[in-house]
Design a protein around this nucleic acid. Sequence first.
DNA 1: ATAATGACTTTCA
DNA 2: TTGAAAGCCATTA
Length: 122
Amino acid sequence: MLSSTQEPPQRASDLYECIYGCVCAVPPGCVTSYGAVGQIIGCSARVVGYALHHLRHVARADVPWQRIINARGMISTHGNEQRRLLEAEGVVFDAQGRVDWERFGWRQDDTGIQRQGDTGTR
DNA sequence: ATAATGACTTTCA
DNA sequence: TTGAAAGCCATTA
């Protein structure tokens, strides 16, 4: 698999594996959003969040759940703690506690920057 | 089987 | 600009 970081989900449990695979595919020092992963694997953002939350129920230290933040580039829950971990990864937060998608916003097709003048201000 | 929940997203006021 | 409500889909009870 050259680029397929995850395979099509055959079952609900496999769907979680897809999500974990996609999260694991995120390089260190980068962040992505729930919706982004949801679009990549083909499910809603809520499911991604639910899957990541399920990580607490299982031992999945291999999954950098910290790199997954909400669409606004901010952290919803466990803010301060997760933010500290991301900073340890090399991610920088601005005064508003937001991350610059221009620099850290990772996508499956990060082979090039393809964003369109989005300054990150939504 | 149905109902409720949830680490989200987007839109309207 | 910020704030609140609805929509979304899978999991769990």
